[in-house]
């Protein structure tokens, strides 16, 4: 490994991701029998329904770099982050990561609405791969940050959506990850909490963490990221410094 390769954190090499949008139409044995004569037609239909969320995307992220991803809805940003996080495997290409990852993609995915906040902290923590001892030691910190001490024994289904989001954010950010994946979650809770969560995120980001960041806010991307990737219809349009961000927004307003 050369000197340059040594501080590599994430390597995405030729990643393509194909979804089959029409697939749920025909997968039961009953249909398989009734449509036995229409096979050829089906196969052609299937080809038509192929949707490439990502096409041949490659980049390398070094230690401490903050990568921003911009692009229109459906450009493949979230898919890309999910692939890096290991939630889905790419159809083609490889992703390699070095170091532990904290994916903040879908916060609160592991919540069970019938359990109390206290139980959900442990449940969500376990789903994100933290040990019980680790959560025990960080429990106070989570409660403190979410400001939900009075509601610890209330089932989460009785929470407001803002409160749920606050709890989820507090659990997710309690670790010190080497790679942080953020998908537009800086806007949770009320104004005071937003500021607090932004501050927390910034301290995580400036603390030398490698970050993959998706946002639609121009200022945020420009302020936080040192490298920007512009994605459109699954392809990388441009990769570079902050000027890519300006170009993207110029492109958007021109439309």
């Amino acid at each position: 490994m050369s000197e340059l390769e040594k501080d590599l954190m994430v390597e995405v090499d030729g990643v393509s991701m194909m979804f089959n949008l029409g697939i749920e139409k025909g997968f039961s044995i009953k249909q398989w029998f009734t449509e036995i004569g229409k096979r050829r037609q089906k196969r052609e239909e299937k080809k038509k329904n192929e949707f490439w969320a990502l096409r041949d995307v490659s980049f390398k992220i070094r230690k401490g770099q903050v990568y921003g991803f911009v692009g229109a809805n459906g450009a493949g940003k979230s898919t890309l982050l999910k692939i890096v996080a290991g939630v889905i495997k790419p159809t083609k290409g490889t992703v390699r990561t070095w170091g532990n990852i904290c994916p903040m993609i879908e916060l609160g995915a592991g919540f069970d609405p019938q359990l109390t906040a206290r139980e959900n902290i442990y449940l969500d923590g376990a789903i994100m791969g933290y040990s019980k001892e680790f959560i025990d030691s960080k429990f106070e910190e989570i409660v403190e940050f979410s400001e939900l001490r009075d509601f610890l024994d209330v089932p989460v289904q009785n929470f407001s959506s803002g409160m749920t989001a606050r709890l989820a954010f507090s659990i997710a950010t309690v670790v010190d990850p080497e790679i942080l994946i953020v998908d537009e979650i800086l806007s949770v809770g009320d104004i005071a909490f937003q500021e607090k969560s932004q501050k927390k995120m910034m301290s995580m980001i400036t603390g030398g963490t490698t970050v993959l960041f998706v946002s639609h806010s121009a200022e945020q991307v420009k302020r936080i990221c040192d490298r920007v990737v512009w994605l459109d219809h699954g392809k990388v349009v441009k990769e570079g410094g902050k000027e890519v961000c300006d170009e993207y927004f110029a492109f958007c307003t021109a439309k």
Binding site: A85, V87, I88, I105, A109, I127
Partner: peptide, 9 residues
């Protein structure tokens, strides 16, 4: 599936 699609486990 909701969980599989969102978090790695």
């Amino acid at each position: 599936f909701g969980l599989i699609n969102k978090v790695y486990m």
